Simulated assay, not measured.
Amino acid sequence: MSSDVASARATSARRDPETLRRWRQYLANERAEAATYRHIAARRAGEEREILLGLADAEGRHEQHWLTLLGEDVGRPVSADLRTRVLSALARRFGSVFVLALVQNAEARSPYSTDPDATPEMAADEQVHEEVVRSLAERGRNRLSGTFRAAVFGANDGLVSNLSLILGVGASGVAPQVILLTGIAGLLAGALSMGAGEYVSVHSQRELLEASTPNPQIHDALPDLDIDANELALLYRARGMTEAEADAHAHEVLAGLHTATHPVPAPSDTVDQHEAIGTGMGAAISSFCFFASGAIIPVLPYLFGLSGMPAVLLSAGLVGIALLFTGGVVGLLSGTSPMKRGLRQLAIGFGAAAATYLLGLAFGTHLG
């Protein structure tokens, strides 16, 4: 007797309307999750595509479990829950690392570990699914981490620094035209500083990686090595091998010198590290543009002629919305709660702005 059939018989006495409703919802969710993985797979190729299709097949097994339990009570198809429907819609249109991060969070919240009608195998499957999706999402995060990091944090810096600058200067009692000029100056100065800083930082990091990349010309020196002294073993020990492993590998390389095509391979993660860092120019442009896009937001009310408390409140409100968004995006990509990250960004940003505003009031009162 299969486990599904046994489970169906064991739960036959609990076919109350609420239980049937829950089973039907699980069935709908499993179908939608399988479709989500297939939609994402359609935008992938090679190994990633095969992995995603494998996850879709696994969701199909879970779907069959609920079909077996429902039997003749399967009823009309119901809609998946809102979260699963949104994921499926996003997967159809984007299939990006953002969707994978959302799917990762969804898998982590699976109710099967506490549901008496789900098998232990299904609960274990969901835990494994979370790790599989986490690994796939990590690949995308690594590809985005260089330029995207500069973009998101550049925007956040622009929001907080220029709001603080505008509120601090405005609280001192200066004219609205001075506040506007200060905001524009802060935008340009900050964007240029961020862009230059990111370029130097990323370019320097890439140079450090390139300095650590093995010299491919070392192959030409191998035929002239003293086999008895065998300094090639020192090279392998410097790269992390034990003394015994280094000696054995060096002898193997030298013995097969005439047939070996690349006896001293470069580290396999060198390209991945360069890809994760991004390019200096790309990071600089992203930092400049996104800092400027963030810094312009608190200036908007003054650009449209507002002044006084209405301008302050509108500026703070616009920045608050933007901080929630940037914090949510960071939380989404990092696999944590977007709402918690958004609220944290909001609290930090408003805290800095409030401190500067109070300082502006103090200086304004003192100067007045």
Results as ranks from 00 to 15, higher is better:
E210L: 11
E63R: 14
R15K: 15
V74D: 02
L209D: 02
I51N: 01
I348D: 01
T11S: 05
R61S: 08
V330H: 04
V99F: 04
S88L: 05
V128N: 08
A233C: 03
R92W: 07
P116G: 04
P214F: 02
A118H: 06
T365K: 09
L90T: 07
T279D: 03
A35G: 06
L314H: 11
P120M: 05
S204F: 05
A322K: 01
L323E: 05
T356V: 09
V103C: 03
L367I: 14
I348E: 02
T213H: 14
G278V: 09
G305Q: 07
V312H: 13
E30A: 07
I348S: 02
P310H: 10
L314T: 12
G190Q: 10
A89P: 01
Q273D: 11
T213C: 03
I40Q: 00
G294Y: 07
R92E: 15
A56H: 07
V78I: 13
D4T: 11
R21K: 15
D16M: 00
R22Y: 14
I227L: 01
A80V: 02
G190I: 06
A58K: 08
V271S: 03
G170Q: 12
N162E: 08
G54S: 09
L192S: 13
H249L: 11
D269W: 12
E275I: 11
M1K: 10
M194D: 11
E107I: 02
Y37W: 14
G168C: 03
R85A: 09
W66F: 15
E48F: 04
V299A: 04
D4R: 13
G351T: 14
Q273R: 15
G170M: 06
T365W: 12
D228F: 05
G280R: 06
L70I: 01
M194S: 14
A362V: 14
R21V: 08
D157A: 09
A266F: 05
S204P: 03
A45Y: 10
L165G: 09
R44D: 09
I218V: 09
G190L: 05
R14G: 08
L300R: 10
R206Y: 04
R139S: 08
D73W: 02
A80E: 02
S201G: 09
V200Q: 07
P338N: 10
M339S: 09
G75H: 04
V202F: 06
L222G: 07
R31E: 12
V330S: 07
T261R: 13
A316I: 10
A175P: 00
D220Y: 15
K340V: 15
A151I: 13
L27E: 03
I285F: 10
T68L: 01
G331D: 07
S193D: 04
V128Y: 12
V202I: 15
T19M: 00
H249N: 10
I285N: 02
V178D: 03
V74P: 01
N162T: 15
P263C: 00
P310Y: 08
R49A: 14
G342I: 04
T68I: 12
A42I: 06
F288I: 14
E72Y: 00
L90P: 00
A150N: 13
L367W: 15
L324G: 13
L82K: 11
